[in-house]
Design a protein around this nucleic acid. Structure first.
Length: 494
RNA sequence: GGGCCGUUAGCUCAGGUGGUAGAGCACCUGAUUUUUAAUCAGGGGGUCGCAGGUUCGAGUCCUGCACGGCCCA
């Protein structure tokens, strides 16, 4: 059972009263001519002119015959003034608008104001209302007016309230939209086509993760929410599209922490006739351009750490870097040596992890975590890169890179494997690895994808960008949940 | 999964060693024609996350659970 604060009943009574007076507290439309920021920015031009604005009442300073309030719209706040003899009530010409404001308008209400742009005695740009219209009567009070909503749980559970009272929160999500818009423009202007591929897939693949499962009653078949769209975008390359991308909501039925969330956004892009070096160049251009766009410079600060996005980014060879740290080559070494190193460097389950995973954990701990400024980690071993082409000068590793920033994996790219025979062998090896206990590896080989490769896929470069993490970096947010509008939490038991 | 921290009014938070629950904002009543967190006077509002236990007595101590946060894996 929900419980209601006493204000709720007071305000409900006001709704009833308003209707009795002939005022509809939830009317249909209101014509606006300006936003708060327009009026402040173009005050000289607008002073004394009539404007129509709308928004939410955030504060009230009430005298009775003369009242002040701050109105919040999408762009900012502006003071409104209601005055006896000046302000009338929309639909009630007889009513003293100032008294009405005092009696019936509460903080949280959405109102429309028609009035004159003025500067008050204290010099604040304001709108002196000639007419006041309630556009939506709020029944619940807003949180405390200068601390806003602090409680993280409440901010996630009631994001709509967070967005109303914490302007920084609204800014984060506006920036998120700007970032996605910038990237979309960037790709469109380079001839990439935005595509839409299935969210529901009969065979999941393209990544290593546990999927969400569902069932189609019509088709009578099990379906998975995609963990990746990689194998579908590659089918499009087979089909003859040369540059494609998709902002893909992907789903991984795994844990939640600062960097992981089960429903997240991955941008995947593929370009025929490119290799991973081309993708590296594009990534430098894209991220340095984004830094410029969002912050005005190549330097950004994330959680107190200064980062430089000035290209070119540092390049780190995976095997060489790990060999330097371990004192032996982890790809050539036998298993016992690797496990010994795992023990020495305190890798959890060092004795039970599959070999390739142990190596990757060692890499993350010894090298990945040390990276601050953007750096390309490149040429990963074949075992951990089942969809990447072998390196042209060393078949034990692949043409692959991951972009790391502050220890976070931000992007993952390959020269895409297009040899259908090699691809089949790699998939079969993956199935073996799954049998030896790696539950994240897809159980089933995507035969239809192999068929597509057999039809012939051009050489191509491909990349996936973790959009949520990029947004975290550029909005300086500590947790992925802070850049996702409506994160899931456990239901609250009553 | 493990460790640490948190949960008190609608919101933000106080509540040494156990002794009948507090403030500010918000709300209600009144005053107020230039306020900026308006001010002044008065008032209402609580299952102290939930369930047990110890005690004459628990917001406070103990145990378990729930939800959340941070860190580790």
């Amino acid at each position: 059972m929900r419980t209601y604060p006493e204000e709720f009943f007071v305000r409900k009574e006001k709704v009833k009263k308003l209707r009795e007076m002939g005022i509809e507290p939830y009317p249909y439309r209101f014509e606006i001519t300006h936003h708060s920021t327009d009026i402040k920015e173009k005050f000289e031009e607008l002073e004394g002119k009539e404007v129509r604005i709308a928004g939410r009442i955030m504060t009230k300073r009430v005298f009775g015959k003369l009242n002040f309030a701050h109105l919040r719209d999408e762009f900012g706040d502006i003071q409104i003034v209601t005055q006896k003899g000046v302000t009338s009530v929309d639909g009630l010409p007889e009513e003293d608008g100032s008294k009405f404001f005092k009696k019936f308008v509460d903080t949280g209400d959405i109102v429309g104001i028609a009035g004159k742009v003025i500067k008050t005695k204290t010099g604040e740009i304001s709108v002196l209302a000639s007419s006041l219209k309630i556009l939506s009567k709020a029944l619940l009070p807003l949180p405390e007016k200068w601390h806003g909503l602090q409680d993280k749980e409440l901010r996630y559970r009631e994001r709509y309230v967070d967005l109303v009272v914490n302007p920084e929160s609204r800014k984060v999500f506006k920036t998120r939209t700007r970032i996605i818009g910038f990237i979309r423009n960037f790709l469109n202007s380079r001839g990439f086509l935005e595509m839409e591929t299935p969210v529901l897939q009969p065979v999941y693949g393209g990544a290593m993760a546990k999927p969400f499962e569902t069932f189609s009653h019509v088709l009578g078949t099990k379906l998975y929410l995609r963990i990746s769209n990689e194998l579908y975008l590659k089918r499009l390359l087979v089909g003859g599209f040369e540059k494609v991308y998709e902002f893909s909501k992907d789903f991984r039925n795994e844990g939640i922490d600062r960097l992981h969330y089960p429903e997240f956004t991955l941008l995947e892009a593929y370009a025929a006739y490119w290799d991973y070096s081309d993708m590296m160049r594009m990534t430098e251009e894209l991220l340095s351009g984004l830094a410029k766009e969002i912050t005005g410079s190549y330097e950004i600060e994330y959680q107190g750490v200064k980062l430089s996005f000035e290209p070119p980014f540092r390049k780190i060879d995976y095997v060489k870097a790990l060999t330097d740290k371990l004192g032996f080559n982890p790809v050539e070494a036998d298993e016992s040596k690797l496990r010994e190193a795992g023990k020495f460097h305190e890798i959890d389950k060092y004795d039970r992890l599959p070999k390739h995973k142990l190596m990757d954990k060692l890499f993350d701990k010894l090298i990945g975590d040390e990276i601050k400024d953007p750096a390309f980690v490149m040429n990963h071993p074949v075992d951990i890169s089942p969809l990447a082409k072998r390196h042209r000068s060393n078949p034990a590793v692949t043409e692959r890179f991951e972009l790391f920033i502050l220890g976070m994996e931000i992007a993952n790219a390959f020269s895409e494997l297009n040899d259908p025979i090699d691809q089949r062998e790699r998939f079969e090896k993956q199935v073996e690895l799954r049998k030896s206990g790696d539950a994240e590896i897809p159980a089933e080989i995507d035969e239809d994808f192999l068929k597509a490769l057999e039809v012939g896929m051009p050489p191509a470069g491909g990349i996936g960008y973790g959009i949520d993490r990029i947004v975290m970096l550029f909005t300086d947010q500590p947790s992925i949940r802070d850049v996702i509008l409506f994160p899931q939490l456990r239901p609250k038991k009553e």
